[in-house]
Amino acid sequence: MARQERAIRTRESILEAMAGLFIEVGYEAATIAALVERTGLTRGALYFHFPTKEAMARGVLDGAVTREGILPQTYKLQEWVDLGLLLAHRMPQEPMLRAAVQLSVDPKARSMFGTRWPDWINLGEDLLVEAEQRGELLPHAVPAEIARLAVGAWTGVQLVTEARPQGPGLDEEIARLYQLILPNVASVGVLAKLDTSPHRAKRLLGPAS
């Protein structure tokens, strides 16, 4: 068991190190040689866990879609909002998430193994469909359209915020995004009860966040 746990930790450390390289230099310029230098592992040890750089990139992308921190709420719309707020809160602290976004907008990487945007869209759509079934959405609101456009808007806000480090943080900007979206999709009775505070994600994750 100890050997298996050590292998898991090694695999995660490789992905985190490669994620850092993807962020710093981009997919094309990130090399195995640089990864060897950064991790202190041999090429053989790296290849034992990941046979190619492409496999490492896929590993980074696979870890990006998560419902970590989302708790059952009275309204499914709140869970949908929490999905975006939690991701915004975790993004600056977790290189794997930042690298996943960078890989998704990198034309070379995207042409090789796609993105995880469809998975995020599907995850959001599932919550929105439940919200619709509970009467939480306005009659004209279409879950598939909302989910698709929200993922596109979220990604754009993240990229712009990262490029403007002196401006508001991602937590604040994403909270504002939902504050603009929700009046157009949430029923009046539900809208007043939704929490879109930029501090909500930190409260959901607890004091360690």
Rank of each mutant, 00 (worst) to 15 (best):
I8G: 01
E145V: 10
R98Y: 07
E125N: 09
P92D: 07
L103S: 05
E16V: 00
A175H: 07
H140A: 10
A57E: 00
A141T: 10
L15Y: 08
G114W: 15
M1W: 03
W117Q: 07
Y178F: 14
E145G: 00
E24S: 11
L41G: 02
F113Y: 15
A147L: 14
T161G: 02
E54D: 08
E37L: 13
L138K: 12
T42C: 09
V36A: 00
L177M: 13
T115H: 10
R134K: 13
G63R: 14
A45W: 15
I181G: 06
R3K: 14
Q78P: 08
G44M: 13
E16S: 04
S13W: 08
S13R: 11
E162T: 01
E94M: 06
F50Y: 14
G167S: 14
E172M: 04
P183I: 04
A109G: 09
A208D: 12
L71F: 11
L86G: 03
L71P: 07
H89P: 05
I8S: 08
P143A: 05
K76Y: 12
L41F: 13
A57S: 03
T39N: 14
H140M: 08
I32V: 14
R90I: 01
A208Y: 15
L46M: 09
A33I: 03
V142A: 08
Y75W: 15
Q78F: 14
E68P: 08
L204N: 09
A29C: 00
E12D: 15
A57W: 00
L61M: 13
L123N: 01
V188D: 03
E136N: 09
Q166G: 09
V157N: 06
Q166N: 10
L137I: 02
A208R: 15
P51R: 13
L87N: 03
S13P: 08
L46R: 01
E68A: 12
L127F: 09
L61E: 05
D106C: 07
M56W: 04
P207C: 13
R110A: 06
L97H: 04
L180C: 04
E28F: 10
I70C: 12
A150Y: 06
H89A: 12
G189S: 08
R38W: 15
M56S: 03
A175L: 03
S187R: 15
K76M: 12
R203S: 12
P198F: 06
R116E: 06
V60W: 02
K193M: 14
Q78I: 02
E130W: 10
H199C: 12
Y75D: 04
A208S: 05
S209V: 00
W80H: 06
G169S: 07
